[in-house]
């Protein structure tokens, strides 16, 4: 049943999508084809598909580690942004722009910044029991505005015609594409490693075991003496690290610089990916590929058919809605109860 729900949700999303296309005056079948198949018809399309899936999968792996322990990090978007800022800062201002250490340093800076941004809600939750959902979400806006300040202000490229963006990163600070014709680059291996680490952590390690006990039965975790605060810290830091690395890989990969639009919403979409993947490493890979296709297809039909760009977000929303609904109907039974006004009414089964 846990596998059935995402499949059912995907099918229902397609059905509602068709109705939606029809209502916009487009023939549903060709539109769906243009949305979901055409993007993958070319080598470039496949490269873009993996390029966009990579950060989604990476972030979702980090988030799922926390979600399994009921630690709800909703602010991966902010941690992603901070990771991109810190990594770009190193790339732009490191004294030796040709150093081979530049990329590894940016990796560490991106990861560290993502973790630091996540450490604030972790500290507040562990020490003062604040709600991490609200704090992580609100800190996303701080990060976005901070980025906006940097690219409009101190870090703006003096030769950039006043565009809100930094100078291009030096070559040593970039992931070189596998093939100059396509944008896919070696940062995808980071994601491959992350998936494996995620699997090892959740399925095999004792630390992951403790986290799953904290999530499934908090009283049992307390009974066994597992620290609740440890689950909070690990859960949030794992998400922050993954998002920070993803932000670094985005800046050092396809973008090559920092701009005010660093993310098309990867941090939020990754939450959906984690849930579609049932918080499982391999499920997340599939979920990430699906979500990436939604991004690609949305861009595709926007260009070829002139459909609105909000379509991607709408599809994401519909998918999550159906997934949650399918879960609800699988795990609960709905029962209609008549109001007590009717004196003869017993409970209706």
């Amino acid at each position: 049943m846990r596998v059935a729900a995402p499949v059912l949700a995907s099918v229902l999303t397609l059905v509602v999508g068709s109705v939606f296309f029809a209502s916009l005056g487009h023939d549903p079948l060709p539109t769906l084809y243009a949305f979901f198949v055409e993007p993958l018809n070319s080598l470039n399309g496949l490269s873009e598909w993996l390029l966009k899936a990579s950060p989604l999968i990476l972030i979702a792996c980090g988030l799922a580690a926390g979600f399994r322990a009921n630690v709800w990090n909703i602010g991966a978007e902010g941690q992603f942004t901070m990771g991109a800022i810190a990594a770009s800062g190193v790339g732009l201002f490191w004294p030796d722009p040709e150093s081979v250490l530049l990329l590894p340093l940016m990796f560490v800076a991106g990861m560290g910044a993502g973790m630091a941004w996540a450490a604030i809600p972790a500290f507040l939750r562990a020490r003062m029991n604040t709600n991490e959902i609200l704090v992580t979400l609100m800190m996303t806006y701080i990060a976005t505005l901070f980025l906006s300040y940097l690219v409009h202000g101190p870090w703006r490229d003096p030769a950039g015609f006043n565009y809100p963006q930094t100078a291009l990163l030096p070559t040593a600070a970039l992931f070189e594409s596998f093939d100059p014709a396509y944008r896919l680059n070696p940062s995808i291996f980071i994601t491959v490693v992350a998936v494996f680490v995620m699997w090892l952590f959740t399925d095999r390690s004792f630390l992951g075991y403790k986290m799953s006990v904290s999530g499934a039965a908090p009283l049992a975790a307390r009974y066994a003496g597992f620290r609740e605060s440890a689950a909070v810290w690990i859960g949030l830091l794992a998400g922050g690290a993954a998002a920070g690395i993803a932000g670094m890989a985005e800046a050092a990969g396809p973008l090559g610089q920092l701009s005010s639009q660093i993310s098309p919403g990867y941090g939020f979409a990754a939450i959906i990916v984690a849930f579609i993947g049932r918080l499982n490493a391999f499920g997340i890979v599939l979920g990430g590929l699906l979500m990436s296709l939604l991004f690609l297809g949305g861009e595709g039909v926007q260009m070829t058919l002139g459909l609105p760009s909000a379509l991607t977000r709408i599809f994401q929303g519909i998918l999550l809605f159906f997934l949650l609904a399918a879960d609800f109907f699988i795990f609960y039974r709905v029962r209609l109860v008549r109001p007590a006004r009717d004196t003869h009414a017993l409970e209706t089964a």
Binding site: F206, Y209, S212, V213, A216, A217, L219, A220, Y223
Partner: peptide, 19 residues
């Protein structure tokens, strides 16, 4: 929910205190 995690298997619940 306290002595055992309901959704976990018995071997997983053995790890709870026998780790």
């Amino acid at each position: 929910g306290r002595g055992a995690v309901p959704s976990h298997t018995l071997w997983e619940n053995a790890v709870l205190t026998a780790h």
